[in-house]
Amino acid sequence: MALDKAMERNRDSERESGVPPAGSRFDDLLRAVALTRDRTAFAELFRFFAPRVKSYLMRLGVDAALAEELMQEAMIMVWRRADSFDPRQASVGTWIFTIARNKRIDALRREKRPTPDPADPALSGDPPVSAEARVAGAETERRMRRALEQLPAEQAELIKMAYFDDETHSMIAAKTRLPLGTVKSRLRLALGRLRRTLEDIV
C-alpha cells in the first residue's frame, strides 16, 4: 500500500521536474521480459536505455566502437538476467546502470569487480543490509531525486560532473578553472549536504 503511494509520488515528482519516465513503467517492462520473454517490452527498454548506456560509457572515455559493443553486451545481459531483478533492491535504471558499470570495469580489467557477498562467512558485526530492511528501489530513487532537487544548483551540477569523472577530478578543475583543492573541498561540501538532505527526506 505504502509502496503504491510512493510510486504515485514518484510519478508526480517526475511530472514536476520533467525527467524521463521511470519507476513503474520500466518495472512493468522488465517484469514482462522476465516472466513472458516479451521482446516488445525489451525493445522499448532498449530504445530508452541503449543510447544512454552508450553515452555513459563514452563519457568515461570508452571510444565509440567499444562503447557500442559493451552497450550491446549490457543490454543482452538485461534480457538474460531480467529474472534476477528485484524491485525491492533497486530501480530499473539503477539496475541497468550497475550492469553497464560492471561491463566497463570487466572490459578494463578483464577480471571480476570485487563486490561484497552477503553470504560471506567472514562478515562480522552487524548483518549486511537485508532486502527487507531496504526501502524499495523506487522509493530510494524518489528520495534521491528530491534530495538532488533541494541542493543549490551549482552543488547539484558539481556532483553530476564528478559522478562521471575519475577520482582525481582534474577534468572538473580544468573545466571550471578552479584549483584542484577547491574542487575537492567543494565536492566534499556538496556530498555532505546531499547526505544530510537525503536523511531528512521521509
Partner: peptide, 16 residues
Amino acid sequence: ETLGGILLANLPPVEI
C-alpha cells in the same frame, strides 16, 4: 548507485 541510475537516465542519448 541510485544516483548513478538517475544520472544515467538523464544523460543526453548518443547515436547508436
